[in-house]
Design a protein around this nucleic acid. Sequence first.
DNA 1: CGACGTATTGATAGACATCAATACCAGTGG
DNA 2: CCACTGGTATTGATGTCTATCAATACGTCG
Lengths: 247, 247
Amino acid sequence: MIRESILAPFLLSLRARDSVSPEDAARLEALPWRLRDAKADEEFILEGSQTHDSCLVVSGYATRIRHLSDGRRQLTAVHIAGDFVDLHSLHLNRMDHAVTALSSCRLAFVSHSALLDMFEAAPHMALLLWKTTVIDAAIQRAWIVCLGRLSAPKHLAHLLCELCIRLSVIEQTRNGTFDFPVTQQELADMLGLSIVHTNRSLQELRATELVVWNRNRVTIPDFAKLADYAEFDPTYLNLKNIPAGPN
Amino acid sequence: MIRESILAPFLLSLRARDSVSPEDAARLEALPWRLRDAKADEEFILEGSQTHDSCLVVSGYATRIRHLSDGRRQLTAVHIAGDFVDLHSLHLNRMDHAVTALSSCRLAFVSHSALLDMFEAAPHMALLLWKTTVIDAAIQRAWIVCLGRLSAPKHLAHLLCELCIRLSVIEQTRNGTFDFPVTQQELADMLGLSIVHTNRSLQELRATELVVWNRNRVTIPDFAKLADYAEFDPTYLNLKNIPAGPN
DNA sequence: CGACGTATTGATAGACATCAATACCAGTGG
DNA sequence: CCACTGGTATTGATGTCTATCAATACGTCG
């Protein structure tokens, strides 16, 4: 039996947005990846560090996190399997934030020099990876809009819509159900809310039956309804085919 | 007398973060730029549009804006001279937001195909421009943190710190003074606040003499003090030399 | 001078934070 | 098997921040 490629989710994610030739996929496979597992809560890229590798999430959930002086935190992104979390470091001197595992994660690291060599040999690969960072930026803009202009429950709903679509791209949803292994504290730090208000916002979504959430398992019974409620427009995810809803 | 290059601020911005050889600067100069002026409030890149050019701000102020269904708005970025506003469109199918002039602006457009030709001829140029989009993304992360975890006055203070540093890079500050031609409504839409509360937050900064703001002219008398108040850490702007303060 | 957009002020309501307690739940050791 | 423990979730009460509504003032332009 053939081993599933560690790049499978990454390729799913790329191909949902662009065509990727078999040769290009082979180029990515040929990179000298080094695998590593991270436990939940492990901060595997340190704030302020200078790195010489970039990091791809193979499985599990990770997050970008910024710590404030008084100990409060804000998460600025959630990353799922297939996300090339840390292409930034290829360009940035010093990390302005940390990257932490939300669940236990499998990570694949590749050195900057190997990436640069690949770009030298096949310049269009830079465009392909560039695009992934541009889409990450689009997601961040959506977060800005949510933080600035949506109520707490709608913001939470929007986040779940986004996750559902992104996870469906990498085939991690079933009938509108997906894993989302976060504590309410972590959720609060994504939404820029207190933990108490996060809890109440979640209960509001439960009460209106827009969302079912047991432990780490989220179900969206009626995606269109939730998307409408949250003013979710998936354009920013830049998918070739917008899924009508969860599969 | 030699005409000042329309790329002068862009090169200042690039060189504050990276070394750019004269040849590379010449490559950028050689692109087939088309100049265009935009009046204040003109939406020069439409939400939902598909474009075949990218756009650089030569002078003036522009902003990325997202409109919500009920007419409310959220600005997700402020762009100043030297910002390559719209490299995104090189990668994204459809704009998920509009780009609008805050003041009258001079813009320089270049076709995607010309950019791609340049990358073909000189692949490292893609890395250079990629980097600018990565820095934009870092700024957006900072905005997320501000929106999520800073009080209104601190958020405003943080925004002014960021602008002051970015403007000083392109030599648009003098003694801590710079132009910022926005209405309080626009400011409110950046900060995710109501206009009334924006006004009161501004007055608080005035009362504590952290900021002087007359018309469109902002002065920061003591940058270190304001930065401390706003928990501003300029790491994310990725400058080679962090200016100690305004010049 | 009048008109319009913008800024400012006051009063009130709503959203969200904070504090403090209680409930739940998986894991541990007796 | 069960009590204990520590983390997480939930609830209630209260306070603060921010939004909204409604005036009024200011400033530029015709």
